[in-house]
């Protein structure tokens, strides 16, 4: 009896320790990032850092403005979602509502495979195929906003497909039957009832994919061109926040190095906001479900 109790409490303690450890890890990373990055703002104002596009960290009078990279990150991510959301949603709907069990299975395993490919492989594929295709189609060098966006679109699509499929599939079947029983067609049911009913889940999936796209480094580095300038054309070169950190990290010292950590802080905050948005969206979708069960 006593031994069993001892075992129980030991197991409990261990689980608690593991949970605690993961919280501590997040906390330490946050503290570390801010301690390493914040000192920059003694020399450069936050405003200048965020809203100047002069990035000349090694000049005689150095410039630490990351606006071009913020714009670059959002441009590439936005364009990627512009491609990935309609396609991903379409595949998700197809899998949840239209395809047979067998073809659903095949699509699902290939989507999962897509999600498991290392980003460096995506990068290689991007260099060889996407950059040359985009050079032919859109002109420029091929290392560009559009190439980076295409790569990111392919990389975020599995998330969007998966979440869209699951949120549509998990809707109560009474919704679908209710619509069909009113004489709506299957297509009307999908577009007017099922997709709107699953929208919170779908939005959460899109934001999740967006988080992945903003944080992605290697693949975009390999096809984006990485010029530290304001991106003005879709076929022109681009540098994102992540690319900025990785590019200069190998040689930067002093304030330059600090400014890279400060870039990391900006990236961190963006992702934090996105995650909070996902949680809010999910919470909303859960309350909607509970409301649907009848108060």
């Amino acid at each position: 009896m006593k031994r069993r109790k001892l075992f129980e409490s030991a197991a409990e303690t261990m689980l608690f320790a593991s949970a605690f450890l993961s919280i501590v890890a997040v906390l330490f990373i946050t503290i570390f990032l801010f301690r390493s990055g914040m000192p920059l703002f003694r020399k450069v104002s936050v405003f200048e850092f965020l809203f100047s596009s002069r990035w000349e960290p090694t000049a005689a009078t150095p410039g630490y403005g990351i606006l071009s990279f913020i714009v670059g990150s959002f441009l590439v991510t936005g364009l990627a979602l512009f491609i990935a959301v309609p396609v991903g949603l379409a595949v998700g709907i197809y899998m949840a509502e239209l395809s047979g069990r067998k073809s659903s299975k095949i699509i699902r395993s290939s989507v999962e495979l897509l999600a498991g490919i290392p980003s460096v492989v995506y990068g290689l594929f991007g260099i060889v195929i996407i950059s040359s295709v985009s050079r032919t189609l859109f002109g420029g060098s091929g290392y560009s906003v559009i190439s980076a966006a295409i790569i990111l679109a392919i990389m975020t699509m599995p998330t969007i497909i998966n979440v869209a499929e699951v949120s549509i599939r998990s809707l109560p079947k009474e919704l679908k039957e209710g619509s069909l029983a009113l004489g709506a067609t299957h297509w009307q049911t999908i577009i007017r009832v099922l997709v709107p009913a699953a929208r919170s889940g779908i939005i959460a999936g899109v934001i999740l994919g967006m988080g992945r796209a903003i944080g992605e480094t290697l693949a975009v580095l390999m096809v984006g061109g990485n010029a530290p300038i304001m991106p003005t054309k879709l076929n022109g070169m681009v540098r994102t926040l992540t690319m900025n950190i990785i590019t200069d990290m190998s040689y930067a010292t002093g304030d330059h190095l600090t400014s890279l950590f400060a870039t990391g802080i900006v990236l961190f905050l963006f992702i934090l906001v996105l995650n909070l948005t996902v949680q809010l969206a999910l919470k909303k979708s859960i309350t909607e479900m509970e409301g649907g069960a009848g108060a």
Partner: peptide, 27 residues
């Protein structure tokens, strides 16, 4: 489609669509 328009159905569990009352009926 025409059959189901003329032969309507009410289900065991109330299944309103997650939209306004008006839109439910106008659906």
């Amino acid at each position: 489609i025409d059959l189901r328009k003329r032969v309507g159905m009410v289900f065991q569990k109330p299944n309103p669509f997650p939209m306004s009352l008006y839109d439910n009926i106008a659906y």
